[in-house]
Structure formats: C-alpha cells, structure tokens
Lab assay of single mutants.
Amino acid sequence: TYYTVKSGDTLNKIAAQYGVSVANLRSWNGISGDLIFVGQKLIVKKG
C-alpha cells in the first residue's frame, strides 16, 4: 500500500493510522529521521 503524505502528517500519525511502528515505516521507506514531505509517497505494509 502507498500513502501520500498530506500537510500536517507525521510519521507517528501515519504509523498509528495503519497500526504499524514508526521504525517499520522508516525501514520500508529508507528514512533515517522524522523528515517527510507533502506529496511524498510512503510504502505502508498493513500491521
């Protein structure tokens, strides 16, 4: 599943929405910090 980042989104918010961990979101998307951008597509695997 792909999720497109919207204004106001955070990794924590997206992780909670999908029932996954922030660590997994980072791993699946090659993100090291907490910086995400509006319009960015993130890979999300269902929890």
Rank of each mutant, 00 (worst) to 15 (best):
G8D: 08
I43E: 07
I31R: 02
N29I: 01
G8W: 05
Q40F: 04
L42W: 01
I31N: 03
K6I: 14
G33S: 09
S21I: 05
I14C: 02
G8N: 07
L35E: 15
N29Q: 01
G19I: 05
Q40S: 06
L35P: 07
D34I: 06
V22K: 07
I14E: 00
L42I: 11
K41Q: 14
L11D: 01
G30C: 08
I14R: 00
T1D: 14
N12V: 13
G8R: 04
V22C: 06
G19S: 10
V20W: 03
L25T: 01
L25E: 00
A23P: 09
I31L: 15
Q17G: 07
Y3N: 01
N12P: 12
Y18I: 09
T1P: 10
V20A: 07
Y3R: 03
Y2M: 14
V44E: 00
D9C: 02
T10E: 05
T4Q: 09
G8H: 07
K45V: 13
Y2A: 07
V5M: 03
G39E: 05
I43M: 12
Y2H: 12
V20T: 12
L35M: 13
V44G: 01
G33F: 07
L25D: 00
K13G: 13
G33E: 11
L25A: 01
T10D: 09
Q17A: 11
T10N: 08
D34G: 07
I14L: 07
T10C: 04
T4V: 14
G39L: 03
V20S: 05
L11V: 07
G30H: 14
A16C: 08
L35F: 14
G47D: 15
Y3L: 04
S32P: 10
I36A: 04
K45W: 15
S21D: 10
F37W: 11
N12D: 14
I36V: 09
G30R: 08
T4N: 07
W28K: 02
G39Y: 03
R26A: 09
V38R: 06
K41H: 11
G39N: 07
K46R: 13
D9S: 02
L11G: 00
Y18R: 04
I43P: 00
